[in-house]
Design a protein around this nucleic acid. Sequence first.
DNA 1: TATTAATTTGTAATAATTACAGATTTAAAA
DNA 2: TTTTAAATCTGTAATTATTACAAATTAATA
Lengths: 136, 136
Amino acid sequence: MTSNQENSVRLLEHGIKPSVQRLAILDYLDNHRTHPTVDVIYEELAPIIPTLSKTTIYNTLSLFVQSGVALALNIDEKNVHYDGDTSTHAHFRCLKCEQIFDVSMSEFSRPELIQGEVLETHLYYKGICNNCKNQL
Amino acid sequence: MTSNQENSVRLLEHGIKPSVQRLAILDYLDNHRTHPTVDVIYEELAPIIPTLSKTTIYNTLSLFVQSGVALALNIDEKNVHYDGDTSTHAHFRCLKCEQIFDVSMSEFSRPELIQGEVLETHLYYKGICNNCKNQL
DNA sequence: TATTAATTTGTAATAATTACAGATTTAAAA
DNA sequence: TTTTAAATCTGTAATTATTACAAATTAATA
Ligand SMILES: [Mn+2]
Ligand SMILES: [Mn+2]
Ligand SMILES: [Zn+2]
Ligand SMILES: [Zn+2]
């Protein structure tokens, strides 16, 4: 749970001016580690910032990803999910309830035989989460 | 390079009737390890099977993925790529030329602390391939 | 204050995928 | 072989996530 102030600094450090919208989106990402989609963020923030446009969320998240403030997860074939936690970790997506969980991982395994220079590593697990398994 | 005959058996083993279209799509996947998209497959097969519909390719690939004959890769935010090689391996996508390479990997690292039962593991690397790096 | 730049917004365009219903092919029954 | 039914394929329309873009608003600068 990071404060508004800290996220403001975080944006400035990445050369991004902390507008009301940008700060609200980053705060949301930071306080909800649920890897939300654009639509989820919009539904949640629209009541708070009534003038908010979905395009702004798309633009802002693209900016965040390009600047290294957030990660885009392609774990779901339908929607892109966003993550404010850019540290090294993997993800587990439940094929039943569709929730995405963090999987802690200190470092990714890097194969010797790779065909180029690696800039990003994405590790996704899919399956049935413990909650859903118990409900069977 | 697998023969038509073998792929026919492969489909039958998965309970899929080897129609002309299905066999052509599987043969294409098998003979071109480029992880093609639906559009690429369509462009390549349409001249050979003039009546082929893009919907059939979508349906067939969905069937293949559900039956375990092929894998769907969400390594690219734009299009889904398909892979006829269902064995354990990772992928490397060049952010410049957009090619997707296989990365051999005997087994995926499985963390102890995972929130459920893992059914699939996807490991994607992104970066600049050796070819593109040499062209700078 | 006036001017300019940056940001946001709303709408329209794009493009991948899916839904669906009719046409065709294949298999089974008569 | 003919008839009937099931499976598969096809083409078009609908859906939906994302992007393009131009106008409106806001913030910064002179
Ligand atoms: Mn995460
Ligand atoms: Mn592969
Ligand atoms: Zn679940
Ligand atoms: Zn390349």
